[in-house]
Computed example of a mutant assay.
Amino acid sequence: MKLTENTIFITGGTSGIGRALAEAFHQLGNKVIIGGRRKNLLDEVTTANPGMESIEFDVSDLASIEAAAATIIAKYPSLNVLVNNAGIMPFDDAAGKIDDVVSRKILDTNLLGPIRLSSALVEHLKSQPRATIIHNTSVLAYVPLAVTAVYSASKAGLHSYAMSQRFMLRDTSVRVQEIAPPWVDTDLVKKSGDPRAMPLDAFIKETMAKLAGDDEEVIVDVIKPMRANPGPGEHALVNGFNEALIADPIPM
């Protein structure tokens, strides 16, 4: 994608990867609008980045999405980039009883949220000379983390949806790119300085550089072997990955 002269809406833009992406695009002179549920955090980010704007909405709620989309189209008619970044990552136990309320919230936020928001904005995006939809999935879309089974499934679902959406938009002005982060040291899990987690600034630097190209999937080099996972050796890789994390657990 072209990294400048855009009007960009980023969901989950108040912390972690979402905020870092918003600030990186903002520093390049783009018009950036962040979306999130908590007005105090939205105000904190926009105050720290003069010229950035925000919309308060809940990506897990269809009515809120539709209202936000209508506001965005009316207020920012030049919108040409949507970054579906918002996500939640509760831990669970697929060997026991799964909390239905929590699972529904994960799927509403991580999977249905991007689908619904893309649907609400796609006709507007198709009217632009050039437009991009960016889905933030996860390396766990390729190699599930067993202790976040529902989260991993939600990201695998979004990866699948992105591929279908990309194909269906192939003859339009809209391109679909996917970011699939590794474990990045943010508060999505627990910001801890764990050496296994990629520093946020390093992740953003590499990701922004790769977004400037035409790659359909924008993945940092460290996860390329895991992206190559599907195939006859998939089960052994997934089992080995999870056994290593059982031996040295992720901070919770």
Rank of each mutant, 00 (worst) to 15 (best):
L79Y: 01
N80E: 07
N85Y: 03
N85Q: 02
N85I: 07
G87S: 02
G87W: 01
G96C: 05
D100K: 11
R104K: 14
R104D: 15
L107R: 01
D108Y: 10
D108N: 15
T109K: 06
T109N: 10
T109Q: 08
N110M: 06
G113M: 05
L117G: 13
S118E: 03
S118C: 07
S119P: 02
A120L: 11
L121H: 09
V122P: 00
E123T: 14
H124L: 08
K126L: 03
R130L: 03
R130I: 10
R130E: 06
A131Q: 10
I133D: 04
I133M: 14
I133Q: 08
I134M: 10
T137I: 12
S138W: 09
L140W: 11
Y142M: 06
P144C: 06
P144L: 13
L145Y: 14
A146M: 03
A146P: 01
V150W: 00
Y151K: 11
K155W: 09
G157N: 12
L158A: 11
A162I: 15
S164Y: 05
S164M: 10
Q165I: 14
M168Q: 11
D171V: 02
S173F: 00
V176C: 04
V176R: 00
Q177C: 04
P181H: 06
W183R: 04
V184P: 00
D185E: 08
D187N: 09
L188W: 07
L188D: 02
L188V: 11
K190M: 05
K190A: 08
G193H: 06
D194G: 09
P195A: 07
A197P: 14
A197V: 12
A202P: 03
F203H: 11
I204F: 06
K205N: 13
T207D: 15
M208H: 15
K210E: 12
K210Y: 03
K210P: 14
L211V: 10
A212W: 00
D215I: 08
E216A: 10
V218A: 02
V218K: 00
V220F: 01
D221E: 12
V222F: 02
I223S: 08
P225S: 07
M226T: 05
